[in-house]
Design a binder for these strands. Structure first.
Lengths: 343, 343
DNA sequence: AATCACTCCCAAAGCGCTTTGGATGCCCTA
DNA sequence: TAGGGCATCCAAAGCGCTTTGGGAGTGATT
């Protein structure tokens, strides 16, 4: 069923039917009702393509998910983020277009989305330091919002980020206050902007507490379970093992925990852990009492908010860039305790 | 830059340029080259919308991700599956459209995708027993493939599935052969077809070994870490605790492991675990020696294959339904050992 | 009775492609 | 020299919508 057919069955022009359906005022309430009813009954849905052609808007938003060909690693937060964004889109009648793409051809994908006109805007995932995509998208004049920020980029753009520096500073502060002096950091890939900020927070806290940095206590890598395991194992094997660890994700924290117990130690007694928790739906941090002490911030909520931001900007392109900084809350669980007294 | 402009700069008609670009024979090689070059230089990309309107094909494939409003649970395999499918799509010039939708409005979404003409076909995720979506899609005449199967549906349709029954039978057989007699099952939600099949495999194996079923050793639920933890804890607290456990996912296996160690036991010595492993990129099961003994099957590869299947069917709709059954391989890791001798 | 202001509706153009149904040369054959 | 066959190209229609620029009817105002 298309507009033409619908209007014929109604004995009206396409113009009138279109206007009735889209809420224009040049239609009497009576006919509007009649049209709405007929459309409903015929299960009429306007063709997105035709509508897009006529209006110049795609009613779709693109998500370009970068993936290193090296590791073929899919970021585990991706699912929950997309779920949050998806809710916002369906509420506003947008479609979500996903492109999985390896880093090398990423820019070509943005160009393609723009020139083929498949999307009205895009969400940029996983910003790196000095990320070149921001300049590219500005160039292309393709509206975008960024999940995170890109240090080193001087132009102003819309983003939503967790205060990663502050979160990791607080996590480290918390451990210092418990008396820990040797605190390890299991960080994400530090080419990623968020990991860079987290390290800063960690370092800053240690310096504030007069604790010297120890490079052997700081690792960086893709946040898998195995990475958390190996990093922790290595730290624990050193001559001066840490009494506490700050981890960048629940998943590597699980690995860290495994390493601790493989060494016959007990997490939360012999070694404390504070982890960042993205509140992934399949990794609930305990049902009542949290297992891990953590800095938590829902990535799903972030997806929802960021999608709304983009939709807002699309509705009014004259708006200045929107920027949202979320604070992560520190939740104390069972994985932390005062440092074992030396000697 | 659009076709009209491009053809004007070339001094050709739109017809000729279009034909040159799409490889039709009515164009001389010389002009074809000339056109291709100009298109390249102008960075011309035909509008998907216009192309779709003219051809009636959307060059897009829909993924409808169901999500229970109750638990707001995002299936963790989702990311890897999508990544696999995405590779296939970009290879074939398709776009991927994602709809996150709660179970109640799922059917409306399929109807919408069809009547708005946004997609050429869809991938059905998470089939349930007697899943009604298959009949609906047949009705709608919207091409589809299913990730998994739906027991109880009698019509023939295209699917790709892991031999879940066989996998879980083998896993249970393996434990029986090690002398275990009390074997727990931590299953997924048994409204899901795959979980139903897995249970069958487990039950069948026990029966073959003359072991009586014990309902207190069988749990069903959404496969989170916490669920694995609580299920295992409950089992271990019974008067006759299991000496082995079969788990439906790596994530609940991690929870099971946590429970085992919380009870002061050692996984792989006091309690054995075999888990199904979807080979998620962030949950590598050990780097050299697998941590968990597991039945493994790459969900990412499944995504790739299923996408290819759909594309094949779209290219030739007269094809009979394609059906692929993948076998999971049993890989022995460190989480299993002979049953502790009684007494 | 003529004018005006509304209200409600319509015909037709246009969005950027593909595709049908020719048109125009040019070379060959008879 | 006329006609046929080929190779190359083009004008225009059509895909399903929105939107511009009227047009007809009604009631109120001069």
């Amino acid at each position: 069923m298309n507009l033409k057919q619908l209007s014929q069955t109604l004995g009206l022009s396409q113009t009138t039917v279109s206007r009735a359906l889209n809420g224009y005022p040049e239609v009497s309430e009576a006919t509007r009702k009649r049209v709405a009813l007929a459309a409903e009954k015929a299960n009429y849905r306007p063709s997105t393509r035709a509508k897009g052609l006529a209006t110049g808007r795609a009613l779709a938003i693109g998500h370009v998910i970068p993936m290193s060909t090296k590791h073929e690693m899919v970021n585990p937060i991706f699912g929950d983020f997309i779920a949050g964004a998806g809710e916002a889109y369906s509420r506003h009648g947008f479609e979500m277009i996903l492109s999985i793409v390896d880093d090398s051809s990423e820019e070509a994908v943005y160009q393609g989305l723009k020139s083929r006109g498949s999307v009205d805007g895009v969400v940029v995932h996983g910003p790196r330091m000095n990320d070149s995509r921001i300049a590219l998208l500005d160039d292309l004049d393709l509206p975008f919002v960024v999940h995170g920020r890109a240090s080193g980029v001087t132009t102003s753009y819309s983003w939503l980020d967790v205060n990663n520096r502050r979160a990791f500073q607080r996590a480290t502060d918390f451990l210092c206050d418990l008396g820990h002096r040797r605190i390890g950091l299991i960080n994400g890939l530090e080419t990623m902007d968020f990991a860079h900020r987290r390290r800063h927070g960690y370092v800053e806290s240690l310096q504030n507490h007069g604790i010297e940095l120890d490079p052997t206590l700081m690792t960086t890598g893709e946040m898998t379970e195995g990475y958390g395991y190996l990093s922790t194992l290595a730290m624990l094997s050193s001559s001066q093992p840490p009494t506490a660890i700050v981890s960048a994700s629940m998943i590597s924290a699980l690995g860290a925990r495994r390493a601790i117990e493989d060494r016959g130690l007990v997490m939360g007694r012999d070694v404390s852990i504070v982890t960042h928790d993205d509140m992934l739906s399949y990794l609930q941090n305990g049902t009542d009492v949290p297992v891990f002490t953590s800095t938590r911030s829902s990535v799903r909520e972030a997806g929802r908010l960021l999608a709304e931001m983009l939709i807002t900007r699309l509705a009014d392109p004259t708006l200045p860039p929107l920027q949202t900084l979320l604070e992560a809350e520190l939740t104390v669980g069972q994985s932390t305790s005062p440092a074992p007294s030396a000697g």
